[in-house]
């Protein structure tokens, strides 16, 4: 068969090819502008790398005196305890918010109100929330637990509400048809459909809360973060690296527990 003279070019997602190339050139120029305005330069970067290598050198081998080690274990325990308390408290508060933020279960105004509350919880970073709670409740674990609980609401309620919106209406309808009330329908027709997801979300949030609990101590909200900040401030780099390793270990264990549990229930 004779070769065909026709050619074909993949259609572009842009308005046309000129626009496409202008966009690419514009992007490169924009990143260049950002680099020059923020003072990020190869020289500055290289300087940082050298400091970094020096720092890592001072961090190995990780060591800690017995007092330091005991203090670290105590505060790690505090972090894990905070994460558990906050998960329980946060999920308990999240359950009603979740139901009230499911578009298919509540009237529109209720839905919008609860979505807004959830959005506030999601938009603030946990460090900012922690600063506020430390100002209100003073330094320590209480502020930490409240911070993580507050952050749990935004995460858990939102995802739970989305699961509620995906349920099979037929199962609800059947309960309604037997003469069940609104609450009967929720208890009998809705809850069984979302229980496994609720458990999965809780365990996953606990896993996130462990990680978060290691950092909010930096602003005084309890846990291991307080200790790690002190170690860096006092140039105890070898102690700091010990703490980092311990955090990694704890987070890994938490993640493993959460992964296994979720696989079993979902």
């Amino acid at each position: 068969m004779a070769a065909d003279q026709q050619t074909w070019r993949r259609p572009t997602a842009f308005y046309n090819r000129t626009v496409k190339w202008l966009f690419y050139i514009g992007s490169v120029l924009f990143v260049g502008l950002l680099l020059s305005r923020t003072g990020v330069s190869p020289g500055r970067f290289w300087q940082g790398i050298l400091f970094g290598i020096d720092l890592v050198g001072q961090m190995v081998p990780p060591t800690a005196t017995e007092t330091q080690f005991n203090r670290m274990m105590e505060m790690l325990g505090e972090s894990v305890a905070m994460s558990m308390l906050a998960t329980v408290l946060g999920v308990l508060i999240s359950i009603p918010f979740g139901f009230l933020a499911a578009e298919n279960l509540v009237p529109k105004p209720v839905y919008y109100l609860n979505r807004s509350i959830i959005m506030v919880s999601r938009s603030l970073h946990s460090l900012i929330v922690a600063i506020i709670f430390v100002k209100a409740f003073g330094l320590g674990v209480v502020a930490g637990v409240l911070t993580l609980s507050f952050k749990t609401i935004g995460y858990w309620s939102k995802l739970f509400a989305e699961d509620l919106e995906d349920i099979d209406r037929g199962q609800m309808e059947a309960i309604e048809a037997t003469g069940g009330s609104r609450l009967h329908t929720i208890v009998y027709g809705v809850v069984p459909q979302v229980i496994p997801r609720a458990i999965g979300l809780t365990v996953y949030r606990w896993d996130i809360n462990i990680r978060q609990s290691t950092i909010i101590g930096i602003v005084g909200a309890g846990g291991i973060g307080t200790v790690i900040l002190a170690a860096f401030d006092k140039y105890q780099y070898q102690y700091a690296s010990t703490i980092l390793l311990a955090i990694v270990a704890v987070v890994m264990v938490g993640e493993a527990i959460s992964a296994i549990t979720r696989r079993r229930v979902e």
């Binding site: 199962q171 069984p192 496994p196």
Partner: peptide, 15 residues
Amino acid sequence: VERLTVMENVLSGRL
């Protein structure tokens, strides 16, 4: 209700 037992489903007729 898919995740409930047969008995629970039958009893739901008495809700």
